[in-house]
Write a protein that binds this DNA or RNA. Structure first.
Lengths: 214, 214
DNA sequence: TTCGTTATTATACGGTTGAATAATTACGAG
DNA sequence: CTCGTAATTATTCAACCGTATAATAACGAA
């Protein structure tokens, strides 16, 4: 019966370790497998420590949810702002980033679905969902507006919103399908499908890196 | 301490009651709230009875998952075959059915998400997902092919599949958003957005009930 | 060094879980 | 009418859950 050796870490990395372990558990074992004991084991600490950093297990789950969503939005936003200044290229890269790893992978989708299934159950999760959804859509809406302006069209607010909603739908849907049964799309790469679809939604505006007559 | 009165029912209705109670629990309390005791209570039976009709709780969850998915696809298929013989009207009704109750409601989405989050965890759930996805897509693919034929275009297999994938994406994405935060779309009804989007994806083919020049 | 504070571990508790088994009741065959 | 079979209830069990509390070790200030 030797006592587990102490290992002190800063609050930042401890919280990060615990959240990462939480997400690992959920993605690999499901929500029911994400127990305080299993999470603590994977984080390399004892279960009691969780309630030293989080007021409850649910609190930790909510923080984990928030981190997943902000991580996704910031990842695709960064991809859009990466190198191009061309509005169409930015939207193009934004869409592709949504449908390629690390955003489009099984782990992320499992986490997203597990949390979504709790949105209607727990108001705290509903609020996190609403925040992250609006953040994502506002980014997309701005990208669409820039594309329309560059194409010489008037950036009508209502049309921008409607387009953003529809494009968001295409992205979400293909993200889910491609991640869950990705092996079915080896001959129909989804980023390509998405780009073509969005071009159609935009009324024929090309999103190719090198503008080509349409 | 009076003994609970016996109430015998046929195997069919018992299984149905138990599955319905299971789905109620999941949608209202989440997967962690779907315990054998709560499910049995809602079905009006004793917990032990569950394992008389299902080899395990997981087995019952899988049957419940299968029922949810077949219910959804059959509902939208029925909507497509309801009254119209016009291919475009059929596709139109199919899409609208996907984005209106009972398919598009919070309960169904919660169930879907809860199960999806288990697809990567349990191979049995993965198989059910694959089956239901392929069933849905094949229905949609046939509808798209008929529309293309009627429009005088060659129903190229690859194009049909690609269109079905993209349309499926639009439907899925809008279904999720509309169901989770439906109150945001009171001024932008999603069925309308979906129809306009699919028309764009189809290259301008109108899905309106009364064909109009495009 | 000393000592108070706090991060971390260890242990305990009441309640719940899925499953297994035993007891009881309804129903159908004969 | 009887009795065997199956459906349903009742009870039990070992394991596990989230949380609370106490013991201990590390760190920083003085």
């Amino acid at each position: 019966m030797s006592r587990r050796p102490f290992h002190r870490a800063s609050e930042a990395v401890r919280r990060q370790d615990l959240i990462r372990a939480t997400l690992d558990c959920i993605s690999e074992l499901g929500l029911r497998g994400a127990t305080v004991r299993e999470i603590a084991a994977r984080a390399g600490v004892t279960p009691g420590l969780i309630r030293h950093y989080f007021s409850s297990k649910d609190q930790m789950l909510q923080d984990a949810y928030r981190e997943v969503m902000t991580g996704m939005t910031s990842a695709v936003s960064a991809a859009a702002d990466a190198d191009q200044s061309n509005p169409r290229a930015k939207l193009h890269d934004f869409i592709v980033a949504n449908l390629t790893p690390p955003v489009a992978d099984g782990r992320t989708l499992s986490l997203w679905a597990a949390f979504i299934s709790h949105v209607r159950v727990d108001p705290a999760f509903a609020e996190i969902h609403l925040e992250s959804y609006l953040a994502f859509r506002s980014v997309l809406e701005a990208l669409v507006a820039d594309v329309l302006i560059e194409a010489g069209e008037s950036p009508d607010a209502k049309r921008c919103r409607e387009l953003a909603i529809a494009i968001n739908g295409v992205i979400d849907g293909l993200w889910i399908e491609g991640t869950l049964v990705g092996h079915l799309f080896s001959e129909t790469p989804l980023p390509g499908v998405a780009i073509k679809s969005v071009e159609a939604l935009l009324g024929g505006i090309s999103l190719a890196a090198k503008p080509q007559t349409n």
